[in-house]
Simulated assay, not measured.
Amino acid sequence: MSSHSSEQVKRKTSDPELPSRFSMVRSFQLADFVTLGNGVCGCLSLMFAMKALITQNTDFLFTSFWCIPVGVFFDFLDGRVARWKNSSSLLGQELDSLADFCSFGIAPAVLGFACGFQKMLDLVVLTYFVCCGLARLARYNATVAAMPKDSGGKVKFFEGTPIPTTLVIVGVLAYGVSCGKFWRFANPVYQHEGPFAVFSQAFTPEHVWGGEITLFPGYELHPLVLMYGVSGTLMISRRLRIPKP
Rank of each mutant, 00 (worst) to 15 (best):
residue 68 I to S: 07
residue 67 C to E: 08
residue 10 K to D: 14
residue 233 T to N: 00
residue 136 R to W: 04
residue 174 A to C: 11
residue 61 L to M: 14
residue 26 R to M: 12
residue 13 T to V: 13
residue 107 A to R: 03
residue 147 M to L: 15
residue 231 S to F: 11
residue 229 G to E: 08
residue 164 P to A: 06
residue 155 V to Y: 03
residue 11 R to F: 03
residue 22 F to R: 04
residue 184 R to Y: 11
residue 158 F to M: 09
residue 58 T to Y: 03
residue 245 P to F: 14
residue 110 V to F: 11
residue 19 P to N: 09
residue 118 Q to K: 12
residue 4 H to F: 06
residue 223 P to Q: 10
residue 73 F to L: 15
residue 34 V to D: 07
residue 135 A to K: 09
residue 233 T to L: 13
residue 154 K to G: 03
residue 184 R to V: 01
residue 89 S to A: 01
residue 104 F to K: 08
residue 94 E to H: 14
residue 39 G to A: 06
residue 107 A to S: 14
residue 241 R to H: 03
residue 185 F to D: 13
residue 93 Q to Y: 02
residue 240 L to N: 05
residue 18 L to K: 06
residue 3 S to E: 15
residue 26 R to Q: 14
residue 185 F to C: 10
residue 227 M to V: 15
residue 200 S to V: 09
residue 48 F to M: 14
residue 188 P to Q: 06
residue 178 S to C: 00
residue 40 V to N: 00
residue 83 R to N: 10
residue 51 K to V: 06
residue 99 A to G: 05
residue 127 T to K: 02
residue 138 A to T: 12
residue 223 P to N: 09
residue 221 L to D: 01
residue 170 V to W: 02
residue 15 D to C: 03
residue 58 T to S: 12
residue 233 T to F: 15
residue 40 V to C: 05
residue 14 S to P: 00
residue 105 G to H: 06
residue 23 S to Y: 13
residue 55 T to A: 07
residue 35 T to P: 02
residue 113 F to R: 06
residue 107 A to H: 10
residue 53 L to N: 03
residue 245 P to G: 14
residue 69 P to Q: 05
residue 201 Q to D: 15
residue 59 D to C: 02
residue 236 I to A: 05
residue 103 S to T: 15
residue 101 F to I: 14
residue 112 G to V: 05
residue 233 T to I: 01
residue 119 K to A: 06
residue 168 V to I: 15
residue 58 T to D: 13
residue 175 Y to L: 15
residue 137 L to T: 07
residue 197 A to S: 14
residue 58 T to A: 02
residue 242 I to P: 07
residue 123 L to W: 00
residue 52 A to L: 04
residue 33 F to S: 03
residue 190 Y to C: 01
residue 155 V to N: 03
residue 114 A to W: 03
residue 225 V to N: 02
residue 81 V to G: 02
residue 241 R to M: 11
residue 119 K to N: 12
residue 233 T to Y: 13
residue 137 L to D: 05
residue 18 L to Q: 07
residue 12 K to I: 11
residue 152 G to H: 13
residue 6 S to R: 14
residue 143 T to E: 11
residue 234 L to C: 12
residue 19 P to G: 10
residue 30 L to C: 08
residue 76 F to S: 07
residue 146 A to C: 06
residue 82 A to F: 08
residue 134 L to G: 09
residue 233 T to Q: 04
residue 14 S to R: 11
residue 128 Y to E: 04
